[in-house]
Design a binder for these strands. Structure first.
Length: 825
RNA sequence: GCCGAAGUGGCGAAAUGGCAUACGCGCUGGUCUCAAAAACCAGUCGGGGCAACCCGGUGUGGGUUCAACUCCCACCUUCGGCACCA
């Protein structure tokens, strides 16, 4: 029977049912067995699965199945990151409820996942929009609130007008909303924050432990956390009473500071300009900058603009009086919102100083041009050199001077060494409906009151009027809003913002260890056994957002004493995107390929094989219809091989004296075991693992069996079995079917992973490459153990080699046993 | 500007410093067929040669080495991240 489309569908459904009925992938804690936790970043349920999901989950599935066959106790769960704005938007558009929309998407998604035959423990399936899940969000929030890690503050926040909600810093990509790409503006609002900055040091330090993460992800996190060591310098304002604190990483240039610049939003601005003659002009300027969006303000080629306050500060190292300016190129969010300007050694300051004719003073001598004068400078010199005009530090190398000047300033109490972080606290309030309610109540008498633990969950009300406009929808659900204060029982109001959905996904991997637990956020014994996740797999787009937040939550749980490890994900794989015609597949570009349509024609196995074979997991993958066809052809070959050449009545390999053909078959069989095992284990090189199976197939195809000789048939049988077992993780349905057909009773998953015989890999004769001066000049079939001396004799006796050498003297003879000889003449 | 990754046939791609292009696609020719499809067999980096074989060749230019896709230096291109970060 050929491997027809009809047959494929029958077989795939059959085995999916068997796996389900027998609970083959159900994971139970077992202290006697070594665990392995494979997890892919759980999907946002937006409808049917797409090729990106298929790729992500196929990679994970191969790893999970491979580990199962290697005898690990594998946890491989799946769930849905189900809260979020798209559900709300879709509900508004289609006049339905977000819950309805979300659960119907989940149904479609689950069906798609099952059709692919993934090895999930479906008993652990969960969705974050279920109150059995999000009540623990609320619990975590309360624990953070108790410890001062969740707090409310009024400040400028990122606001996306099109999404009608606030955004975390991590959600602003290049000045635009991560979801809808509209420009983000600043708004002053009272909002809830998580104090992720308390963990800056740990989040940075522990990156060192992540040696099995892609280095670029580690680097991106490093940059995001952005530790910079420097000095806070205190500049007294002439005529007092204020002191301006300036942060600098270049304290070595302090003697070259010729003016000071404040950010327009700097709190001292008001005090400094009050009562000055040009007060109004300055205020107008501040106003003008405030009205610019961030991207307008920091636009790449934008000219720096500023205004003189009329006031002066005293440089504490030399007593120089320097003017205080306000300029748009200084940002309130970074450092202290005030800088000392050193135009000779900072290009930004240089451009500004030239624009407004401010003074320059060289303090680092450029070794290339030591006599350069200020008036000849074409740009700032940002390199190294010896200090000049720097009082007691003249002549010092500027890098050495950094520490010395900082120490000196510290002693004189005119500066203090400090560390500045780029990481900001995490804004989690969202003015949207479809999210976990923040468990807080506002009481006129008691103020901000946390909802007591025993009153959780604060359930999201069903009936809400959503328009996508006019603030939090929950604020209009009066039955929800009006409540009693847990402390005084007086009238109170609930918090009507919901939590950012990244909160939900920051701890789901822990919940998967005990998803049914109704009394605790997670079972600590289960978590101690299963966690950390051994292999995490997902897209690079989460390099900062989700992965940073999850690391933060993990550290928080450790501080709560619930877990004992620091990092949630031991090894991380970021899979490449799936492209069509050179562009990322997306609905808006209209270049998607529906996995279902491929499955319909070729089956899930061909789709899986095609995706695994086309490119290494981390690389981009260009989708090709012909490649699926090729995968199907290959599986068809395997199918026909079993049908036509496997003889079930012969099952033992008895022959001991193998001929050349037998040895070649055995060599390829063992080589395939070695290659597939190593390729999966070392670098998830599925593409080359599969190619080695194709090579084995090619050898099997040419292997001839004498009908009378049962030992040859036995060898062939064994080679066929090896193909099926090794292929089993890649294309599980067809392999289970064939495995059963050749007489096995148990699932292929229960079969131990095969081992190879190193001796069988050795060849009696090897091809020795002979080079002359590194150029290929001949090949010789030589017995494997031939010594260097004997090789020399054979080679130099060869007429072609003799011709090539001619009469030139041999200077050197390089010999690599079993591989190559190089004659240098 | 800074940081990171990558650049190899017509295409997807492969190569512990040791035969460049494995494996697959596509293409060409053949077997089978009335014919086609499928399947199978052979060929397939460029140039020269009837041929054995020779020459060139992994983004560019240098270097290290008996030997470089691989290591080092400089540059070009593409992609990704960060970015008036003081």
């Amino acid at each position: 029977m050929p491997y027809t489309t009809h047959e494929i569908h029958r077989i795939e459904a059959k085995w999916q049912k068997i796996w389900q009925d027998q609970k083959i992938f159900s994971a139970q804690m077992d202290a006697a067995k070594e665990k392995y936790y494979v997890l892919e970043m759980f999907p946002y349920p937006s409808g049917k699965i797409h090729m990106g999901h298929v790729r992500n989950y196929t990679i994970a599935d191969v790893i999970a199945r491979f580990k199962m066959m290697q005898g690990f106790n594998v946890l491989h769960p799946m769930g849905y990151d189900a809260f979020g704005q798209p559900a709300e938007n879709a509900a508004i558009k289609n006049k339905t409820h977000p819950a309805h929309w979300t659960y119907s998407c989940i149904d479609q998604m689950r069906a798609g996942l099952k059709r692919m035959g993934f090895s999930y423990d479906w008993d652990r399936e969960m969705a974050t929009c279920d109150h059995a899940y999000y009540r623990w969000n609320q619990w975590i929030f309360l624990k953070m609130y108790e410890r001062g890690l969740a707090f409310r503050k009024a400040s400028l926040v990122n606001w996306c007008a099109s999404c009608a909600t606030t955004l975390a810093n991590e959600e602003v990509i290049g000045g635009a909303c991560w979801r809808c790409q509209s420009q983000v503006v600043q708004r002053k609002l009272d909002q809830w924050y998580l104090k992720i900055t308390d963990y800056s040091e740990q989040l940075l330090e522990d990156l060192r432990k992540l040696d099995q993460w892609p280095s670029r992800v580690v680097t991106m996190q490093q940059n995001w956390i952005g530790r910079s060591r420097g000095v806070n310098i205190f500049f007294p304002v002439k005529g007092g009473p204020a002191t301006i604190t300036v942060f600098t990483t270049r304290v070595d240039t302090i003697f070259g500071a010729t003016y000071i610049v404040l950010a327009p939003e700097h709190p001292l601005v008001e005090q400094l300009i009050a009562g000055l003659p040009n007060e109004k002009k300055i205020r107008d300027f501040v106003e003008k900058v405030a009205n610019e969006s961030k991207s307008q303000r920091v636009g790449t080629d934008k000219k720096k603009e500023g205004i003189f306050t009329g006031r002066y500060a005293v440089n504490p190292v030399n007593g120089n009086e320097i003017p205080i300016w306000i300029a748009d190129y200084v940002l309130m969010e970074y450092g202290t919102g005030a800088i000392m300007a050193v135009p000779t050694h900072d290009q930004r300051d240089f451009l500004f100083a030239k624009e407004y004719q401010l003074p320059l003073c060289i303090v680092i001598r450029n070794p290339q041009d030591p006599h350069l004068r200020e008036e000849d400078l074409k740009s700032a010199y940002e390199g190294d050199g010896a200090l000049v005009h720097s009082g007691p530090f003249d002549g010092l190398d500027n890098r050495e001077a950094v520490g010395k000047i900082a120490a000196w300033m510290g002693e004189k109490k005119i500066g203090a060494t400090t560390v500045h972080w780029r990481l900001r606290d995490w804004l989690i309030s969202r003015q949207r409906y479809w999210g976990a309610p923040i468990p807080i109540v506002y009481c006129d008498r008691c103020g901000i009151v946390a909802v007591p633990e025993n009153q959780l969950p604060v359930v999201l009300p069903q009936e809400v009027n959503m328009t996508g406009e006019g603030g939090s929808p929950l604020a209009r659900a009066l039955e929800f809003v009006h409540t009693l204060c847990p402390q005084c029982q007086g009238k109170a109001r609930r918090e009507t913002d919901t939590m950012a959905t990244f909160f939900d996904s920051s701890w789901y991997f822990l919940r998967f260890c005990s998803p049914e637990n109704g009394s605790k956020v997670f079972d600590t014994k289960e978590a101690a056994y299963w966690m950390p996740v051994d292999q995490y797999i997902g897209g690079i787009e989460h390099a900062i957002l989700h992965l940073l937040y999850s690391r933060f939550f993990t550290k928080f749980f450790k501080d709560l004493g619930l877990i004992s490890f620091e990092e949630p994900f031991t090894r991380l794989l970021t899979q490449g995107m799936v492209l069509k015609n050179g562009e990322v597949m997306s609905k808006s570009k209209g270049n998607t390929v529906d996995p279902d349509s491929v499955i319909e024609r070729y089956g899930a196995d061909s789709l899986r094989l095609c995706i695994l074979f086309a490119a290494p997991p981390e690389d981009q993958l260009e989708w090709s219809d012909t490649a699926v066809d090729a995968s199907w052809k290959f599986l068809n070959r395997v199918w026909n091989l079993v049908e036509q050449r496997f003889v079930a009545t012969i099952d033992h390999v008895t022959a001991t004296d193998l001929d050349q053909q037998d040895k070649a078959l055995e060599r390829e069989r063992n080589a395939a075991i070695k290659k597939v095992t190593e390729d999966i284990a070392v670098g998830y090189k599925f593409n080359t693992a599969i190619s080695s199976l194709m090579i084995l197939m090619n050898v099997i195809d040419t292997y001839k069996v004498n009908k009378i000789d049962t030992s040859k048939q036995a060898l062939l049988n064994r080679a066929i079995e090896t193909v099926i077992v090794l292929l089993g993780s890649f294309t599980p349905h067809i392999c289970e079917e064939l495995w059963e057909r050749i007489g096995h009773k148990e699932s292929i998953i229960k079969t131990p992973w095969p081992t190879y015989d190193a001796q069988a890999l050795d060849q009696d004769f090897v091809e020795l490459v002979v080079q002359i001066n590194g150029k290929l000049r001949g090949r010789f079939q030589i017995a494997r153990q031939t010594t260097e001396e004997d090789v020399k004799k054979i080679i130099f006796a060869d007429t072609k080699i003799q011709e090539a050498i001619a009469d030139k003297p041999v200077k050197r003879f390089v010999f690599v046993a079993g591989r190559l000889a190089n004659i240098v003449i």
